[in-house]
Amino acid sequence: MTTTAAVRGLTYWLFRYRRTWRGSIVISVVNPLFFMIALGLGLGKLIDDRPNPQLHGHTYAEFIVPGLLVAAVMQTAFLEAAGPVFQSTRPTGNYRSASATPLRPADIFHGHLLFWLLRAAQNAILFIAVCACFGAVDLVHATLLVPIAVLVAVAFCAPASAWAVTVDRPAKLNMMFRFVILPLYMFSGTFFPIEQLPSWLQPVAWATPLWHGIDLARGVALDTATLPLTLIHVAYLAAFTAAGIAFARRNYRRQLYV
Rank of each mutant, 00 (worst) to 15 (best):
I64P: 03
I64D: 01
P66R: 02
G67F: 09
G67L: 06
L69W: 03
L69M: 10
L69V: 04
L69Q: 05
V70C: 02
V70N: 02
A72H: 09
A72T: 09
A72I: 00
V73Q: 07
V73L: 12
M74E: 02
M74P: 00
Q75H: 14
Q75W: 14
T76G: 15
F78W: 14
L79E: 06
L79A: 14
L79F: 04
L79M: 11
E80V: 06
A82V: 08
G83D: 05
G83C: 02
P84V: 04
P84A: 04
V85D: 08
F86V: 09
Q87Y: 10
Q87I: 03
S88Y: 03
R90E: 03
P91W: 00
P91L: 00
P91N: 01
P91Q: 00
G93T: 05
N94W: 03
Y95C: 03
Y95P: 04
R96G: 01
S97Q: 11
S97C: 06
S97P: 07
A98D: 07
A98L: 09
A98Y: 06
A98N: 05
S99Y: 02
T101M: 11
T101P: 15
T101K: 10
T101V: 10
P102F: 04
L103H: 07
L103E: 08
R104G: 00
R104W: 01
P105N: 00
A106P: 01
A106M: 04
A106G: 06
A106K: 08
D107L: 01
I108C: 05
F109M: 12
H110L: 08
G111P: 05
H112Q: 13
L113H: 09
L114S: 08
F115P: 04
F115L: 01
W116D: 15
W116K: 14
L117E: 10
L118A: 08
R119D: 12
R119V: 14
A120N: 06
A120L: 11
A121W: 13
Q122S: 15
N123M: 09
N123C: 08
N123Q: 14
A124R: 02
I125T: 15
I125K: 04
L126C: 11
L126M: 13
L126F: 10
L126N: 07
F127E: 14
A129S: 13
A129F: 09
V130L: 09
V130S: 08
C131H: 04
C131G: 09
C131R: 02
A132Q: 07
A132G: 10
C133N: 12
G135E: 09
G135P: 00
A136P: 01
A136W: 05
D138W: 07
D138E: 10
L139K: 03
H141T: 11
